[in-house]
């Protein structure tokens, strides 16, 4: 199943992009990267990935939060799971409540840096499986996931 899944990594730090790319590729995922929000959005629209790994503190005209908003307000993209990564996840978590704008900052999960890679892998797997079930490409029977042909 993993081999079918395409993950887009959006991060302005080349080291972090490379680390995540290496990690996800070695765990059987297809990866693509973008170094800023603008390129990230273009790549998402073109590739329609199964999951987005997003640095929410990027410094570019389109920040991580803008990417999130773009995805969530586009009917064709809004169901793509997003995992937000930040060195300030706790602080941002507080702000999300204050903004109260679900469309704006609606990630499926937040991971604080340094990212616990095992937990990240489990979350990616879980979100991808949910995505497949939603799309009708898989069913879960007795806790096991079966791909439809």
């Amino acid at each position: 199943m993993e081999n079918l899944s395409k993950i887009i990594i959006i991060d302005d730090n080349p080291d972090f992009r490379f680390i995540m790319e290496t990690f996800l590729k070695r765990n059987g995922y297809e990866t693509m990267t973008a170094e800023n929000g603008q390129k990230g959005i273009e790549l998402i629209e073109k590739e329609y990935p199964d999951l987005i790994l997003l640095d929410v503190m990027m410094e570019s005209i389109y920040t991580g939060l803008d990417v999130c908003k773009k995805v969530r307000t586009n009917p064709g993209l809004k169901d793509i799971p997003i995992i937000g990564i930040s060195g300030m996840a706790d602080e941002l978590g507080v702000q999300v409540e204050k903004w109260g704008d679900e469309d704006y900052f609606n990630v499926n999960e937040f991971f604080d840096k340094p990212v616990d890679k095992e937990k990240l892998l489990l979350k990616i797997k879980e979100l991808l499986e949910e995505g497949l079930i939603k799309k009708g490409k898989a069913v879960r029977i007795g806790g096991k996931l079966y791909l439809k042909k």
Partner: peptide, 12 residues
């Protein structure tokens, strides 16, 4: 936290 991410990720 960013630096730790770089150190752990780099070591990985």
């Amino acid at each position: 936290k960013n630096i730790l991410e770089g150190l752990q990720g780099g070591a990985y």
